[in-house]
């Protein structure tokens, strides 16, 4: 089993898992992460990831990527987000900084097209945003509690269940995909591809309209798609408690960082993913010990 660790700068490029567990500064998230930390015992980091899965404005500057890549002595994975044409142009300028054999997580079909045509020496990996499955933490756990049936079978599966689809991905050089731990449980047996599970945060939703970026605009100008920002997302975390739930999960928490909402895997979900990795059903674990919305030394 291989473990990847996401880092945010060159100084962190070869950090250990134990070191990374000290990075979280949020008083809300740190105790929760500390509670999960014992479940990661025995895992050894063998790969480094760096970049941005959820926002094109968090793509690093070329010099920042260059510094991380130069400092990193482990195999390297570069995380990329969904992009408009402007974001894709920025990303295109970053890809030459990578080395042959480096992995690129893609979250956008346009990025895969560019990788396939212009950067065949890089290894494309389907990101979790393109691993289609419902992850709604408000309600999905209830389907698992309701027990087996056609509905739960569908909810525990994903688009990766289709062999024609994974065969098509292979034609584009994609051999591996990233997934989230699902509140309703993952059926890993049906996926016909090597899988990496991201933890401990799963994404709920993400947008080109960023609530945090709205802080920099007059009211009538707020909430425009792909609006330029000053990384306001790095200045605060917004915690939501599901106090309006029609069920009993009114203490459930979700977190907004910038343009994306996340849930935290429960101890049972983390245990299940680690066990799956140890047993070989998952090829890798991708640990992100901070919410995966890091500043990265952002491009201009």
């Amino acid at each position: 089993m291989e473990v990847t660790l996401q880092v945010g700068c060159a100084a962190e490029a070869n950090a250990s898992l134990a070191e990374s567990l000290e990075w979280e500064r949020s008083a809300k998230l740190r105790p929760l992460l500390d509670g999960l930390a014992p479940l990661f015992e025995g895992l050894e980091v063998r790969r480094t990831s760096y970049g941005a899965e959820f926002c094109e404005h968090l793509l690093p500057a070329p010099e920042a990527l260059r510094a991380v890549r130069a400092a990193c002595t482990r195999p390297f994975t570069f995380l990329t987000p969904y992009v408009g044409d402007a974001g894709l142009a920025k990303l295109r300028a970053l890809l030459p900084e990578l080395r042959p054999g480096d992995e690129v997580i893609f979250s956008d079909w346009g990025v895969l097209n560019v990788l396939h045509r212009e950067f065949p020496h890089l290894v494309p990996v389907q990101g979790r945003l393109l691993n289609k499955s419902l992850r709604d933490p408000r309600v999905m756990g209830l389907y698992a509690e309701a027990g087996p049936g056609p509905t739960l079978t569908v909810l525990q599966g994903s688009n990766l269940d289709n062999r024609a689809y994974t065969a098509m991905l292979r034609r584009f050089g994609v051999q591996r995909a990233e997934i989230d731990g699902l509140p309703q449980g993952n059926d890993l047996a049906t996926a016909s591809m090597e899988l990496t599970a991201c933890l401990p945060y799963g994404f709920i939703s993400t947008a080109r309209v960023c609530q945090a970026a709205g802080l920099g605009y007059r009211k009538t100008e707020k909430f425009q798609p792909a609006a330029l920002c000053k990384q306001e997302c790095q200045t605060f975390l917004l915690e939501h408690a599901y106090t309006n739930s029609p069920f009993e999960n009114r203490d459930q928490k979700f977190w907004l960082k910038g343009n994306s909402y996340f849930y935290l895997h429960t101890p049972a979900m983390v245990k299940a993913l680690v066990r799956s990795a140890r047993e070989g059903a998952l090829a890798r674990l991708h640990l992100q010990t901070r919410l995966p919305m890091l500043a990265n030394g952002v491009a201009a």
């Binding site: 500064r25 949020s26 008083a27 809300k28 709604d136 408000r138 309600v139 709920i204 939703s205 790095q234 200045t235 605060f236 975390l237 917004l238 915690e239 939501h240 408690a241 599901y242 106090t243 309006n244 739930s245 029609p246 979700f254 909402y261």
Partner: peptide
Amino acid sequence: VGAFCTSLSGMQTDFEWH
């Protein structure tokens, strides 16, 4: 549960400044 985006507007929130 309704749409997540509209459901959020009815949830209790707390900011943490970094």
